[in-house]
Structure formats: structure tokens, C-alpha cells
């Protein structure tokens, strides 16, 4: 009886929390389809014109392209920097992981606004492209997410034994890495790349302060629109929201598939 009561309470609690958290998102979506919605409980009517306006707007398209470029380049930099380290920590020397633990609290002790202060102090007046500083800094900020996702990729198999086995079978370390490690972490790598891309795609603080609005990404464009055109801004926010939703759904789907596989594998070794 008590169990049942628990479940009912749990459902009510979760519903209340979800409604609370989702309300702003729903309101934004409604606003984006509204003809006009000022000082009323519900909008005056529905329309698609704001969407058409945004999609045909060249500012929007170029901001989108800029954000995508930022996301892709950051992802490449982050992979180049972190994949070898995570690989080394998992295959050669587990003790390094303890020393890399500081990474997980990095965004809490040094958030973007603090990091950017140091960056501006050091690099603002140096004759190096500020874009480079921005890309490296965003890569660093993505570190906790990327590191965690990559590290998770190494959980599924005994990569140390696999890598060593490949060496014993005659491969060089680099070939062993390419032939044995990479193919078996590709899903985890994909998730790590997706997460890194998302965090760079939606970056605001660093981009705004380091490049001073000269490089208008989606978020900066969103902020500008917010000041001038609420309706257009709500469309952009909705689009951004759906972008996040799609990425989340892709990730959940992948992880679910992986999860099922793992369960099967465990079952297998027990079954013999």
C-alpha cells in the first residue's frame, strides 16, 4: 500500500517540478507563434510569419554559420588535446586520473567570467588573433564535459589489455591505437564531440567579451534581437531549444543502445 502511495506522490512531485521548469520554454514557443501577446493571459492569435522572417534573415544565417564554425573548430581542438590524455590515463597510467580530478571542479572555481578576466589581461593587447584565444579558451571550458564523456568511452572494455595485445601481436603503438582503440570508442567519442560542440555552439560570455560583439554568434544575435524584436527573438530561442532537444534525444538514444548492449554482455560472461 505504502509503495503505491509513494509512486503517486512521486508522480505529483515530478509533474509539478517539470511544469515549473518547462513553463518558460513553453511560453517562448507559444510566443513565437503568437500574432501579438502583450498584457494578456493568452496570445491574440497565431502566425508563422516570425519564422519566415527569421529564416530569410541574412543576419540569422550568418550567425548560425559562425556558431557552427565555432562549434566544429572547438571540437577538433578539444579532441586533439584531450583524447591522447584520456587514452594515456586509461591505458598506461591510471594514477594520472587522480591528478586530473581538478578538471571536474574547474567550471565552478573558475567560471567563464573569471577566466575571461585573465585572458583579457594577458592577450587583449598582444598582436595575436583574438579568435585563436577564444577558440582555445572555449576548448578549455568544454574540458570537464569532454573529459568525462571521453573517459566514459573507456569503461566498456579492458582497453589496456586490448592495446597491449595488439602490441604483442606486432603492431606499433600508433597503429594499435588507430586499429584497436579508436574503433571501439567511436560511440563514446561521438557523444563527447556532440557535447563539446553543443557547449561551444551556445557559448556567450567569452565570445561577447573577447571579440566584443564583432563576431556575432547565435547567442549574441539572440541577445541583440531580444533588445529590439521580442517576436523574432522568441523564434530564435525556440529554434535553439529544438536544437538542444534534438541533440539530447540523439544522445539518449545512443546511450540506451549502448546500455542494452552492456547488459547483454554481462549476461553473456555469466552464461558461458
Amino acid at each position: 500500500m505504502e509503495k503505491h502511495a509513494d509512486k503517486v506522490i512521486a508522480k505529483i512531485v515530478i509533474t509539478l517540478i517539470s511544469v515549473y521548469l518547462v513553463a518558460p520554454i513553453i511560453a517562448t514557443i507559444m510566443y513565437s507563434f503568437a500574432k501579438s501577446w502583450v498584457n494578456t493571459i493568452l496570445p491574440d492569435g497565431w502566425t508563422l510569419e516570425w519564422y519566415l522572417q527569421l529564416v530569410t534573415n541574412s543576419d540569422f544565417l550568418s550567425a548560425l554559420v559562425r556558431s557552427i564554425i565555432l562549434g566544429i573548430v572547438t571540437t577538433i581542438i578539444a579532441m586533439c588535446c584531450f583524447l591522447p590524455v584520456v587514452f594515456y590515463a586509461n591505458v598506461y597510467d591510471e594514477s594520472i586520473k587522480a591528478r586530473l580530478r581538478f578538471i571536474t571542479v574547474l567550471p565552478f572555481t573558475i567560471p567563464g567570467i573569471v577566466l575571461v578576466t585573465g585572458l583579457v589581461r594577458v592577450y587583449a593587447n598582444l598582436p595575436i588573433p583574438q579568435m585563436l584565444v577564444l577558440l582555445l579558451a572555449i576548448s578549455l571550458l568544454s574540458l570537464p564535459v569532454t573529459y568525462q564523456a571521453l573517459d566514459n568511452a573507456f569503461i566498456a572494455h579492458d582497453f589496456r589489455a586490448m592495446f597491449e595485445q595488439a602490441l604483442i601481436l606486432g603492431d606499433s603503438p600508433l597503429k594499435a591505437f588507430v586499429k584497436v582503440v579508436i574503433p571501439n570508442i567511436r560511440v563514446g567519442m561521438f557523444i563527447a564531440m556532440l557535447l563539446t560542440f553543443t557547449s561551444a555552439f551556445g557559448e556567450y560570455v567569452l565570445t561577447n567579451i573577447i571579440l566584443g560583439g564583432n563576431y556575432e554568434t547565435l547567442k549574441i544575435y539572440m541577445y541583440r534581437l531580444m533588445q529590439s524584436n521580442g517576436q523574432a527573438s522568441s523564434v530564435l530561442t525556440t529554434v535553439y531549444f529544438f536544437f538542444l532537444a534534438i541533440i539530447s534525444i540523439i544522445m539518449i538514444a545512443i546511450m540506451k543502445r549502448q546500455g542494452n548492449k552492456k547488459v547483454e554482455e554481462v549476461g553473456d560472461t555469466k552464461k558461458l
Binding site: P24, M222, G230, Y240
Partner: peptide, 13 residues
């Protein structure tokens, strides 16, 4: 991850 500009805008609405 909706935090930031999008959240601010939603709250204004």
C-alpha cells in the same frame, strides 16, 4: 543548458 540568454528571454515573456 537552457540557462543564459534564452532563459532570460523566456522569463521576460
Amino acid at each position: 543548458s537552457f540557462a543564459g540568454v534564452p532563459l532570460a528571454f523566456s522569463l521576460i515573456i
